[in-house]
Design a protein around this nucleic acid. Structure first.
Lengths: 195, 195
DNA sequence: GTGAAAACGGCGGGACCCGCCGTTTTGCCT
DNA sequence: AGGCAAAACGGCGGGTCCCGCCGTTTTCAC
């Protein structure tokens, strides 16, 4: 089915494993040559399996993205549409903040969004859009808000807090700010503030 | 007073002029060597005047930052604290979106914030904080909001929309979203939506 | 086993950034 | 005016990276 040779498969896995560590350590700009060296393969082999940097990053984050999608599914069972959406968005932000390079990867999908329905951004959109639509139906979110808006905002929060002393805390502040708005509010239901 | 030699001053200006163009064209990652070549100086000279990439970027954006600060001053005369703050924040976002590399520059000031009170981030903070404080006194903004929050959010919006087809439009959407909050609102006073 | 296709990896080229160091330019001081 | 020390310059070599080419090795089907 895969049509791949065994050594190719093996190298693919090795490279991917090393890449995960390397990206976690150095972000989206991790050196491809360094990855090749650590994986014990030639740099050409890395490029053969992952023609572009993006393709490597997509692969690196694939599992975690699936986790997020699954979470969205589970949350769709919750009765309160607003809470479900907020809970999930919060998880998205936290993940984007914690996983170096993830926000960068998401930040420029633009180059032809159509091609791969499996791309991180598209997978996430597919998973999150229903949550947003329900929240809008529940009149809990303004109808002009698109999922793209929310995703971009989450990415922005992650990117902007990346170089802070305590990114997670700052990201939480910004998330809350964006959800509540600038003005002092009339006790809106809080999103869970734990882990 | 400057203590510089005339040729040094001349080269400094030349490099700065070229750098502005180059950064505008290629963002914060513009090639220093390319700048040197275009300016007709050795790459070492560029590094002599601007020891770090950051220092060059700070210089490049200095004028524009001053413009923003001045604008903050003028807006402090307006009667409505909330409007003044929003107007200024909007200008900040628009500038960050339009000037390639600016948001990147702002995004990691962290490395020792103390040293230079002239750094872009510190200048902007100094200019904007009074506006925020007034808005808070006017009960138009929640008291837990810090200027740092607002600046980071603006930077985030700029960074996240950088690779979009129409960054400015998307940035405006996100700005509005963050100001109003996620929920459908009770007609809050709008920020001017023009240029 | 063997042979063709797939996969590999080393090599050279081009672009950077950086530090060193001999050379040129300035401007002060006589 | 002329000389001289310090300031400023810029070229060079080393290191890293990404990329394309191409001869060699590995795999797998027959």
């Amino acid at each position: 089915m895969t049509g791949q040779r065994s050594d190719a498969r093996r190298n693919y896995q090795r490279i991917l494993a090393v890449a995960e560590a390397e990206v976690a350590a150095h972000g989206a700009e991790a050196s491809l040559e360094q990855i090749a060296r650590t994986a014990g393969v030639g740099s050409a082999t890395v490029r053969r399996h992952f023609p572009t940097r993006r393709s490597l990053l997509e692969a690196v984050f694939h599992e975690r993205v699936e986790g997020l999608c699954e979470r969205a599914h589970r949350l769709s069972a919750i009765e309160d549409g607003r809470t479900a959406l907020l809970e999930w968005l919060h998880a998205l932000v936290l993940y984007a903040v914690s996983a170096r390079g993830f926000a960068d990867t998401l930040s420029y999908e633009p180059p032809a969004e159509e091609p791969s329905p499996h791309s991180c951004g598209n997978r996430i959109s597919a998973a999150g859009t229903p949550l947003l639509e329900r929240a809008i139906r529940d009149k809990a979110v303004a109808p002009h808000v698109t999922f793209h808006d929310l995703l971009t905002l989450a990415v922005g929060i992650a990117l902007a807090t990346e170089h802070h002393k305590d990114p997670e805390t700052q990201a939480n502040r910004l998330f809350r700010l964006a959800v509540e708005g600038l003005s002092p509010e009339h006790g809106i239901a809080e999103v869970s503030e734990n882990s």
